[in-house]
Design a protein around this nucleic acid. Structure first.
Lengths: 262, 262
DNA sequence: TTGCTCCTCACGTCACGTGAGGTGGC
DNA sequence: TTGCTCCTCACGTCACGTGAGGTGGC
């Protein structure tokens, strides 16, 4: 039997035979005068044994030991294979569940499925692509910073912010916000055309709308604390917003605490 | 943020960052004067997006396209991920079922689980290690040659051969067979001490015991046909048996057909 | 000076797949 | 001479892990 015959009888490729020789699970047979390998039945048997063990998930390296071991000494090997397979299946099943969840909610892939619906809702209420993107990126950051333990609390927060009345009010405010200095993104380049009056007005409007929600969230006693990551979050909004928009945000930030305790 | 900071915030290794740069999913950031990479929040966001898509099973190569695609254009991607995961889980589950089957029957790993119990039974009836090994190897060959379609018929054959009465008779015959020329394995080296009379006696005894079983198997109309592989199977027994043992087998082979039609 | 972080190669992983380039056999 | 099989390198796969060897920063 030469390589081709053995391979086709056993149902493997010739390259696989070579590989088995290389790693030492299948002994090199004698050669014919022309250099062709000359296999015997024993090689076929060994090859079939290799195939069977490999199909069970035994790594090639461990096959020689497994084959020469006493017939009943395989308990340990089978146990470890089973554990390994169980773990792999669990991982893949979790992945598939995630995929299924994303399919049913048809939300963005790059944020946690729990938050997807909120973001979808917000962006449909607020047609600005730019602001929607900022929201999504901010959510990605918040979700990661909150961690798995913080997720339920983050969800609770997002739920409060999705109050229909609040959303309705936010929609008009966001339109005004979007209109603020549209054009000069992330740079002091052109001094904005927006008047200080509009900036102040908008700041106050935001505060009015937001304060009750923030109050509720505070009172819920969420353990979430992003102060350690405030710099990161600030860097993000700074990069993404126009100068007048940043002024509004800064104003809201500055006055929020005072308004909350009023 | 330098590499170490970004990596620890995002929960990846620094080497992973380098890899993402190399394959182009994460842009190279600017460098500080000392050559250190200087990352920003955008890099963190991108990194978190990469982690999330990778966790879904999206290959790195496809991540940039997935991230820049329209939010709702992911149906196709999710479908293919789901199919892929389903197939993988099915494969692993089949493997695990196999492992479980081998654990409960605690049979040899290198033969099909369906045949394991028969071999275990035979080898316990016949304590010769050498003969048991030959049986096992022969079974491995037969199982492969029969293929998946032939397995049920092979099992039926093995079942018939496991008839308790037949096994009891075979046990004593196999002891005599094993005693035949023990010592000169697979070579004409020492002319065997076994008498021609014992060889003839044993041949006849085997025929008497085997003929009814073979008759039943023939009548069952099994579609199995190993004549195409007869040379392979013969090579195997020739290699594994002593000269007098081979004489017995040859005798059985020669006279079997005639006895069947008597 | 010591310890820590950063940097750039570059090989290893696992079981082969896939050419590249060359030589016997019918 | 042509087509087929065999042979030996040797690189590629996928997402990084793991040193090796060298240089700034506190």
């Amino acid at each position: 039997m030469n390589s081709g015959e053995l391979a086709s009888i056993a149902g493997v490729t010739v390259r696989a035979l070579r590989h088995y020789h290389q790693v030492g699970v299948l002994p090199e047979p004698a050669r014919s005068a022309n250099g062709y390998r000359n296999y015997g039945v024993q090689d076929l048997i060994t090859l079939l044994q290799i195939k069977r063990l490999a199909a069970l998930g035994v790594p090639l390296e461990r096959i020689p030991a497994a084959l020469s071991a006493a017939d009943d000494g395989h308990t340990e090997l089978l146990d470890s294979l089973d554990r390994e397979l169980e773990a792999q299946i669990a991982r893949l099943t979790a992945q598939r569940d995630l995929v299924a969840q994303l399919r049913t909610t048809s939300a963005a892939l790059d944020l946690p499925p729990e938050l997807g619906p909120f973001l979808a809702q917000w962006s449909s209420a607020n047609p600005s692509k730019r602001l929607a993107k900022i929201d999504r990126e901010q959510s990605i950051l918040l979700a990661h910073l909150a961690g798995a333990e913080g997720m339920p609390h983050l969800v609770a927060m997002f739920e409060r912010l999705s109050d229909p009345a609040l959303l309705a009010e936010m929609a008009t405010l966001m339109a005004r916000f979007e209109a603020l200095g549209a054009g000069d993104v992330a740079g002091e380049a052109t001094p904005s055309a927006s008047s200080d009056a509009e900036i102040n007005d908008l700041t106050e409007a935001f505060l009015t709308v937001i304060v009750p929600a923030v109050r509720d969230i505070r009172e819920a006693g969420s353990p979430l604390d992003f102060t350690a990551s405030a710099a990161l979050l600030a860097e993000h909004t700074d990069q993404s917003l126009t100068v007048p928009q940043r002024r509004v945000l800064a104003g809201v930030d500055e006055k929020l605490e005072a308004r909350l305790t009023e």
